[in-house]
Nucleic acid binder design. Sequence first.
DNA 1: ACTTGTCCTGTCATGCCGTCAGCTTACCGA
DNA 2: TCGGTAAGCTGACGGCATGACAGGACAAGT
Lengths: 215, 215
Amino acid sequence: MTGQVRTVDGRVAGRRGQATRQKLLDCLGEMLSTSPYRDVKVIDVARKAGTSPATFYQYFPDVEGAVLEIAEEMAKEGAALTGLVSERAWTGKAGWQTAEELVDGFLTFWRKHDAILRVVDLGAAEGDKRFYKIRMKILNAVTNSLTDSVKELQSKGKVDKDISPAAVAGSLVAMLAAVASHQKGFQTWGVKQAELKPSLATIVHLGITGRKPTK
Amino acid sequence: MTGQVRTVDGRVAGRRGQATRQKLLDCLGEMLSTSPYRDVKVIDVARKAGTSPATFYQYFPDVEGAVLEIAEEMAKEGAALTGLVSERAWTGKAGWQTAEELVDGFLTFWRKHDAILRVVDLGAAEGDKRFYKIRMKILNAVTNSLTDSVKELQSKGKVDKDISPAAVAGSLVAMLAAVASHQKGFQTWGVKQAELKPSLATIVHLGITGRKPTK
DNA sequence: ACTTGTCCTGTCATGCCGTCAGCTTACCGA
DNA sequence: TCGGTAAGCTGACGGCATGACAGGACAAGT
């Protein structure tokens, strides 16, 4: 689209500028994973990046703006999640494998981007359209593919016709996202990682196909 | 447990004190539902309550402390959610009704406490034990009851024995919580409320019993 | 009226926010 | 080599939230 990285006051950023900008983003990302979002201050990010607060404001309108930038970057990477669903079979053993790989891919991605996804989730839940859009971008690919799968199974009469494919797909994806962001919580709960994945895969398989998986 | 409401510096609060304290909590709760958590300032809450910031700090160590207070209150009310699961049947039409009522009760509760639950969720995801504990308190009742249901069905051979009851129950509850906190999101997605509930109920029923519901 | 204990606020030091003017650095054409 | 120009960075400042304190206002009992 633009291809041009610009500062807040409209200048185009050169090599050096882009480097500092990126360094600020990196430091912000790191801070988000070590301290509560509410407590992340511009001055801390700037200090950590070895620069001054004023420099931060040259590249981002505020902390939220910078977070959006990181999230956007992550969303691009998240597009790869589509591959976990599209063109996959949902019958027999292959169906079980699809479910397993979907769960595994999802949890891995979520854990990797843990900190930033928390903030995106909060922003989306608070009604901020920009965050909501990014959250969509990541979840949409998976949700749409799943929706298609359900529709197809529905047309074959394997799934009840009175359920909404989009609602089921959306709910399952929401489940995966929620469980992923509380993975540590489940551990405290006495649920081990190893138990979690097959359980999730089973639920996903059940939800999509209406049948128990054959393993 | 305590029964005594105390100020930060240890005094016991009288009638008037408790009134202002409550007013501050109410105003904070209201602010949380209209502006982002990150932007909620003590001075705004105080102004809204017709008092001074200093008064706020007499009753709460900081904004987070006050939020915890509200959340604690909500958790008590949330204990009633247990009734949605315990002593309910999971077979035949009664099973479908159980699933429906569970979903409905959950969504209603979540929508009612929308704003505060967002913050609790964030705090828990960020690893704050106090928030995590409250989140547990609300979800635990439901999760434990569901876990028992799955165990029972498992012992009757109606559910595969190699899945973890706790993991399934936890995942389903997480799904309900996640969908509930993004209810508005689903609407934008083109999924209507009316479609959402039966879909969720179906997934819950499938997850718990392993069978399609008979409606 | 006086005392006691609760309740609230004025005020202040501290620290972060967000902006500006102005300085330094890098690039480029002559 | 040498300015010229735009990019890049920072010190400094007014403004505001924070959090602490001492002291004034108020209600209730004596």
